[in-house]
Simulated scan of single mutants.
Amino acid sequence: MFKNIFGRIFAAWMLVMFALTMLVIFIPVWIISYTPEPRRTRGFLFFGRLWMKVYMPLIGCPVRKKGLEYFAPGQTYVVVCNHNSLIDVPVTSAEIPGVNKTLAKASLAKVPLFGVLYRIGGILVDRSSEASRKQSVVEMKNALSLGIHILLYPEGTRNRTDQPLKNFYDGAFALAIDTQTPLMPSLLFHTKKILPVGKKFFAWPHRIDYHFLPPLQTTGMTRDDIPAFKEKVFRLMWDYYESNNLK
């Protein structure tokens, strides 16, 4: 009983703090939105990282990182990550070093105020529109050419199962191969404990661990290699998750 009550109070605290801390950075980020890329995303991330440095400890969910040494200076990556919770996106965007963008659900860009930040930090896609999906690929390739890392969740949607991962889609692997960009696997731990599956308006404080794995080269690969490459990354991430899922 106590946990259910506290979990709902904590969920309210998370929402209120998210809104209040977002308002602090909203105006400078809105101004930055009128600058060209990659300056726009670099500026957004500067304020976004300050935001998360305050917000995450404030809600009792500090983030610990491992594997940052795998990011080589001057190298751009396609970063893939598991997806368990709504909190994954702000955590990953803030914690990936350098300038990065993620593929973002177009409908969320309509949310007042938050939608402005969402549009700047992401490449929007309407998955029900073939034209939108094709345009998002063009924009991701252009971002990579500007030295912007692309973060993708190959499971597509949040993993609501009790398994470490859901099956992967081809998109992230096709993008890395088409652009001959190294692909870096990464894994988030504990975000499902903060926002448990199946519980409405409930949250629980817990630290987050974000681990980066050694990048995999795509030089010389073609689209024929996608199935084997995807399976290799899936197995690497699954095994790493099972052996490093700390309490």
Rank of each mutant, 00 (worst) to 15 (best):
D224N: 15
V138C: 00
N167S: 15
V79P: 05
Y241W: 13
E37D: 12
Y241F: 15
I150W: 03
E95V: 07
Q163A: 14
M221Q: 07
E231V: 02
V138I: 14
I5S: 10
G48S: 01
N4H: 09
G220R: 05
D162K: 15
F26V: 02
P73R: 00
T219R: 03
L216S: 00
F26Y: 15
H83G: 10
T222M: 10
A172D: 06
V63Q: 06
L20C: 14
V16G: 06
V197Q: 08
G7P: 12
R223V: 04
E242P: 02
F229H: 05
E37Y: 10
P196N: 07
G115S: 04
K166V: 06
L86N: 14
K232M: 13
V29D: 03
L183E: 00
L68P: 00
A109I: 03
P154W: 07
V16Q: 06
K166G: 09
D126I: 06
G115E: 04
L216K: 05
D209Q: 08
M22D: 01
Q163E: 15
R207P: 04
V78I: 09
I32T: 05
I148G: 01
V78D: 02
I177M: 10
W238K: 15
D126V: 08
P185E: 07
S243W: 03
M22P: 00
V16C: 10
F212R: 02
L103V: 14
P214Y: 05
S186W: 06
A131C: 00
Y118G: 05
I59S: 05
G98V: 02
G121V: 01
L188Q: 09
S145M: 00
V111F: 14
G98Q: 00
W51R: 05
M140Y: 02
E155W: 11
I27K: 08
A228E: 12
D209G: 01
F26R: 03
Q217K: 12
L146W: 03
K247T: 13
F202T: 05
V233L: 09
R42P: 00
P73Q: 03
V99K: 05
F6Y: 15
F201R: 07
L58T: 12
P90W: 08
R8E: 07
A176Q: 06
L188C: 10
N159I: 07
E69I: 01
V80L: 08
I123R: 04
A172H: 06
M140F: 03
N100T: 06
D225A: 15
M17K: 11
L165P: 02
G74L: 00
F6K: 11
E231W: 03
F47E: 02
A203Y: 02
V91R: 05
D126F: 08
K192G: 10
M237H: 11
L124V: 01
D224Y: 09
E69R: 04
L195R: 06
H83N: 10
G147D: 01
D126S: 06
R64H: 12
S132L: 09
L23K: 01
A11Y: 15
Y240V: 04
S85K: 08
A11N: 12
Y240L: 12
